[in-house]
Computed example of a mutant assay.
Amino acid sequence: MRFKWVWLFVIMLLLAECQSSYWVLEKDRIDEVPDIKSYVKDLQMHDDVKGYQVFTISEGKKMVVVSLGSNDKAKKLEMSDVKFSPKETIVTVTRKPAPKANEKNPYILIGLDKIEGDLIVQDESGDRFEETDDQQ
């Protein structure tokens, strides 16, 4: 009987480690994070801003806002992958055609449980986004 409890505990630990440590916040939930809502509003007014900005949200988790700038307003961003290593966290996004261009500056909201080492934000081709100046 004790052996079953040990196995159950081990399985629970493995499942906890397998949980995704990133997510995409739906844009209709942006009211939940006022600082980010303000930043996104600025992105739409300053549509030449291309890059990413990192915000700390609840419980030390991070939110990465990636924007394409007005040159790519016919595109949208989708989450591709996040890879963690002790030296770096690599966030990869994919550019897709937007069915209708309803944003002056397309963006995506990526939540991360943690950032390990240097943060690299790139597209599917390996082109890196630069961190933006948060003083718009």
Score class of each variant (00 low, 15 high):
Leu77Thr: 06
Asp133Thr: 00
Pro34Tyr: 10
Val82Pro: 00
Asp133Glu: 09
Ile36Tyr: 03
Val10Pro: 01
Asp72Lys: 06
Gly69Gln: 08
Phe84Val: 14
Lys104Asp: 14
Thr56Met: 12
Ile115Leu: 06
Val82Arg: 01
Lys114Glu: 15
Val40Leu: 09
Asn105Val: 01
Met12Ala: 15
Lys50Leu: 02
Lys62Cys: 07
Asp133Asn: 00
Arg29Val: 11
Asn71Trp: 09
Ile30Cys: 06
Lys96Asp: 01
Gln136Pro: 13
Asp48Thr: 14
Ala101Glu: 02
Tyr107Arg: 05
Gly111Met: 08
Leu14Tyr: 00
Glu17Pro: 07
Asp133Lys: 13
Ala16Ser: 13
Asn105Met: 08
Leu112Ala: 04
Thr94Phe: 08
Ile30Thr: 05
Ile30Ser: 08
Phe129Cys: 05
Glu78Phe: 06
Lys27Met: 00
Pro99Glu: 01
Lys76Arg: 08
Leu68Met: 03
Leu119Trp: 10
Asp118Asn: 06
Glu124Ser: 15
Val54Trp: 09
Pro99Trp: 11
Ser21Glu: 03
Gln53Glu: 05
Thr132Pro: 02
Asp42Lys: 11
Glu26Leu: 04
Glu32Ala: 15
Gln122Pro: 12
Asp127Ser: 02
Pro86Ala: 08
Arg2Met: 12
Ile11Lys: 10
Thr89Val: 03
Ser67Val: 00
Val10Lys: 10
Glu124Tyr: 12
Gln135Asp: 12
Val93Thr: 04
Glu130His: 02
Lys4Cys: 05
Leu43Gln: 00
Ala101Trp: 01
Ile115Asn: 08
Val40Asn: 02
Leu25Thr: 06
Lys27Trp: 10
Asp28Leu: 02
Asp31Cys: 13
Glu88Met: 08
Asn102Glu: 06
Leu13Trp: 10
Ile115Asp: 11
Asp48Asn: 03
Tyr22Arg: 01
Val121Ile: 04
Val49Gly: 00
Val40Asp: 01
